[in-house]
Write a protein that binds this DNA or RNA. Sequence first.
RNA 1: UGGGGCGUCGCCAAGUGGCAAGGCAGCGGGUUUUGAUCCCGCCAUUCGGAGGUUCGAAUCCUCCCGCCCCAGCCA
Length: 552
Amino acid sequence: MSAALRSNFLRTQIQADLESGSVSTVVTRFPPEPNGYLHIGHAKSITVNFGLADQFGGRCHLRFDDTNPEKESQEFINSIQEDVRWLGYQWDGEVRYASSYFEQFFEWALHLIDASLAYVCDLSAEEARSYRGTLTEPGQDSPYRNRPIEVNRELFMQMRNGDFADGERVLRAKIDMASSNMNLRDPILYRIRHATHHQTGNQWPIYPTYDFAHGQEDAIEGVTHSICTLEFEDHRPLYDWFIEHLPVPHRPRQIEFARLNTSYTITSKRKLKQLVDENIVTGWDDPRMPTIAGLRRRGYPAAAIRHFCEEVGTSRSDGTVDVAMLESAVRDHLNQHAPRAMCVMQPLRLTLTNLAESLVLTVPNHPANPEFGSRELVMGSELYIDQADFREEANKQFKRLVLGKRVRLRGGLVIEGESCEKDADGNVVHVLARCVTSVPGTDPEDGVKPKGVIQWVSADEGLAATIRRYDRLFAVAEPSREEDALAALNAQSLEVIEGAMVEPGLSEAEPEQVFQFEREGYFVADRYDHTAEAPVFNLTIGLRDTWSATHG
RNA sequence: UGGGGCGUCGCCAAGUGGCAAGGCAGCGGGUUUUGAUCCCGCCAUUCGGAGGUUCGAAUCCUCCCGCCCCAGCCA
């Protein structure tokens, strides 16, 4: 990661910190709460945090911000680790957990109580809300605000001992109920939750809030740059307040950047969960999901996702990136890395009337890179071509097979349409054509060149395959702005094609291997459902198509 | 109408007083055994608006406009 990277305010700031000597080794962290699967927005945060550490020779921690056990689970902890690794990153040292610092947080809470900077408040949630005031009106001090230190200590110890019910009391910082920054109106440090925690079990009946935990986690770990999203900007004064008033071993600094929004997608964990729960998709890793697991199953290469995140840039201005940019990064990577193969989506029987005996063709696996090698394909007289590639008659725009016209079978001979047979409904079910060349790769001797090139599969050796053609999950550019995002779903986001035919070599495709099916797009062997006996390919992304858009 | 942010091409985004990078999208043209790729060219006299400072401003100052975030015992 030494190539010229575009400058952004984070890199500029860190460079300045390094040069001024205020920071010697850059330490960042990716701090997900294990309450859902990671999505494309997290991928951005991951590339920012790991990328910065990488660029400046520092380190990046993976730390689970597990302060709210009721919403978290081991399943998410596992999936998050897998996703980070799959994206190509390795965190420094062991996985870290906010929960492993709970005892320290508790001591620091006591420290604030002793300094008269925190107190136990008995107000109910509703009462606390009314005491908090509004955006334009100051709040009022809690009647419990001035309890003696010893009383606060005793009460807080009782909270820890589990003497109170959920919600009965909280520990709050004593800051300023009239602050124009709502976060400073005596924020809550601890709440009572008699819940089993996935890491600490039943050790704790009280849990620290995000605000009381995050900065201190950073301080404990020696994080130098605590990078988060814009909505936490208002929390920074509080973040700093804790760091100033607590005997922490290190002084981290919070810097905010604009989260990534991508058109035609949603990244709200709540809504993504709804898609899963209501079976609108098959799971968190459905290929249409914007989750890392979903993109992976869709065939999006990790390198393409990383490249996309870099191309998008990092700034402080809110915006929505056109998903076409992500798709472009995927195509760009796959064009270079995916071997070519042939697949006929809607098979149409084709008979070569004058082919005496089968030919064994040697076809390159990549048009521009010889290192991909080649494969042998048998071209007999019985083949399948795509229904869309044949018409009885057509204008000159149509560069495929037409009766009396010529087309080249990819990697093989040039043929000329002779006749066709139809079923009772008038559908063409069989095309007859004659070869007008006998040597693969040559042009017809009469000088009449083929109009184009089409893909084909041997009728004898071809393999039946299931093709799942995916499209955008949403029909509108900004579903998150819809009153009801689910009403904006794209009804055609999945089309399953059962009778497709692929070339025989694809029986050896490994799950997750991506191919370019020529003239169609990039397809990945499904991570879970693909087998040699019953091949299943997911459409990763179609080839760029500037023709059908303008020619219907 | 309290506080905090943000406004540079259709979408992202560099630029931090010296005369508007790049990517995506789009539009022309060329090459091509993928209507793909690749290649070439075009695409902001202008930086939300109006004033001001300066020899000179997207960059500094003033006012105005627009958008986003904050009133969880979520993160």
